[in-house]
């Protein structure tokens, strides 16, 4: 997963909506662990479009 750190508002919404509980937020740093199955929900829901997937068009 790619986080556009210049766009991310660190709201943590993606953390709570991740079906795998694979996203972690500490202050301004968003990380994904290996439970992420690239379902794309966080990409779709981010209020400002700060997330994208590697290899996605």
């Amino acid at each position: 997963m790619i986080v556009n750190t210049n766009k991310c508002l660190h709201c943590g919404g993606c953390v709570g909506s991740c079906p795998k509980n694979a996203i972690f937020l500490c202050d301004t740093i968003l990380t994904f662990n290996s439970d992420c199955n690239r379902c794309g929900r966080c990409v779709r829901l981010c209020p400002v479009g700060a997330l994208s997937m590697e290899g996605a068009q």
Binding site: G12, G13, G16, S17, P19, N21, R41, L45, C46, P47
Partner: peptide, 23 residues
């Protein structure tokens, strides 16, 4: 809060359906 990780770490299902999430 909405991040709701404590519950999921401890075995309480707080996962949401897509339609029940409001960005």
């Amino acid at each position: 809060g909405v991040e709701s990780q404590v519950g999921r770490w401890c075995g309480i299902d707080t996962n949401l359906k897509l339609g029940d999430i409001e960005p």
